Amino acid sequence: MDQPGFTASLVAGGVAGVSVDLILFPLDTIKTRLQSPQGFYKAGGFYGVYAGVPSTAIGSFPNAAAFFVTYEYVKWILHTDSSSYLMPMTHMLAASAGEVVACLIRVPSEVVKQRAQVSSSSGTFHIFSNILCQEGIQGLYRGYKSTVLREALWSWRQDHVVDSWQSAVCGAFAGGFAAAVTTPLDVAKTRIMLAKAGSSTASGNVLSALHAVWRTQGLSGLFAGVFPRMAAISLGGFIFLGAYDQTRSFLLELGRESP
C-alpha cells in the first residue's frame, strides 16, 4: 500500500472506531450487565452506564486503526480484480487478519472495561492494576480466542468498494444480523473476562463457558443482551463504515491537493 493510503487508513480507522465506541458506550454497558453472571441489576442496572469508558477511550483509536491498516494491507498484498470471483475470499482473509491484530489491543481494553461496567465503584486504573498484580499479562488476554472468533465471523462482510452511504447502510444491516448470530460467543467472552481468577471459566475454554451458561440459564442465557448488542452493532456499522469511508476519502483528496 502506498504511504498516503496507509496513513489515510490509519487515521480514518481510528476516528471511526473512537466515534462508535464513545457514542454507543451506554448500550454496550447494558449488554454487558445483561450477560454478567450476577444479573443485570446487581451488576449496576441502568446506573453509571459510562463506567469503564476511559479504557475504551484509550484503546479505541489504536484498535480500530490496527484493524483497518491490516485489512487494507492484506487486501493490497492479495490484490484481486474487483470483478474476480475471488474478491469475497480476499475480503474474508483481510478481515480475519485485521481482527487477529486488532484483538491484541482490543482484548486488554475489553477485559478492563467489562469489569468496570459491572463494578462501577472501582476505577479503571484500580481494576487494571489488580489484574496485573493477581494474574499478570495473561489476565489481560482472557477471552482472546472467543473475541477473535466472534469478531472475525461478523467482520467478514466488510467491503469498501461502494459509496460511503451504501457502505454504512450495508454495515448496519449485516452487522445487526451477525450480532444476533454471534451473541452466544459474546456471552462466552463476557463470562470468561468476568470470571473469578482460578475458576474453570477463567481458563478461557469457549465451549466450556457456553455449556455452563446453557446448563444454568438455557437458550435465554446464551442470547442475553442480544437486543442492545444488535442495536449497538447495527448503529455502529452505520457510523463506523460511513465515518471510515468519508474520512479516508477526505484525507486522500486532501493529499492529492497538497503540493
Rank of each mutant, 00 (worst) to 15 (best):
residue 52 G to C: 07
residue 52 G to E: 07
residue 52 G to K: 08
residue 53 V to I: 15
residue 53 V to P: 02
residue 53 V to E: 04
residue 54 P to T: 01
residue 54 P to F: 02
residue 54 P to S: 02
residue 55 S to K: 02
residue 55 S to M: 05
residue 55 S to T: 00
residue 55 S to H: 02
residue 56 T to V: 15
residue 58 I to Q: 02
residue 58 I to A: 12
residue 59 G to P: 00
residue 60 S to Y: 05
residue 60 S to W: 03
residue 61 F to C: 05
residue 61 F to I: 12
residue 61 F to V: 12
residue 62 P to D: 07
residue 62 P to K: 04
residue 62 P to N: 08
residue 62 P to Q: 07
residue 63 N to C: 14
residue 63 N to R: 08
residue 63 N to V: 06
residue 64 A to K: 06
residue 64 A to Q: 10
residue 64 A to W: 10
residue 64 A to N: 15
residue 65 A to H: 01
residue 65 A to N: 02
residue 66 A to Y: 03
residue 66 A to M: 10
residue 67 F to S: 01
residue 67 F to N: 05
residue 67 F to Q: 06
residue 67 F to R: 01
residue 67 F to L: 12
residue 68 F to K: 01
residue 68 F to I: 11
residue 69 V to I: 12
residue 69 V to P: 02
residue 69 V to K: 01
residue 70 T to H: 01
residue 70 T to W: 02
residue 70 T to N: 01
residue 71 Y to N: 12
residue 72 E to K: 11
residue 72 E to S: 11
residue 73 Y to S: 15
residue 73 Y to F: 14
residue 74 V to I: 15
residue 74 V to A: 05
residue 74 V to Q: 02
residue 75 K to F: 07
residue 75 K to H: 13
residue 76 W to A: 11
residue 76 W to G: 08
residue 77 I to G: 00
residue 77 I to C: 02
residue 78 L to N: 07
residue 79 H to F: 06
residue 79 H to D: 11
residue 79 H to V: 06
residue 79 H to I: 07
residue 79 H to K: 10
residue 79 H to R: 11
residue 81 D to N: 13
residue 81 D to M: 04
residue 81 D to H: 15
residue 82 S to H: 13
residue 82 S to L: 11
residue 82 S to Q: 14
residue 83 S to P: 03
residue 83 S to F: 04
residue 84 S to Y: 07
residue 84 S to H: 12
residue 84 S to L: 03
residue 84 S to V: 04
residue 85 Y to T: 14
residue 85 Y to L: 10
residue 86 L to Y: 15
residue 86 L to S: 12
residue 86 L to F: 14
residue 86 L to N: 13
residue 87 M to Q: 14
residue 88 P to V: 12
residue 88 P to I: 13
residue 89 M to L: 15
residue 91 H to K: 09
residue 91 H to P: 00
residue 92 M to L: 13
residue 92 M to A: 14
residue 92 M to C: 09
residue 92 M to Q: 08
residue 93 L to Y: 14
residue 94 A to D: 06
residue 94 A to F: 03
residue 95 A to M: 08
residue 95 A to Q: 05
residue 95 A to C: 08
residue 95 A to W: 02
residue 95 A to G: 15
residue 96 S to Q: 10
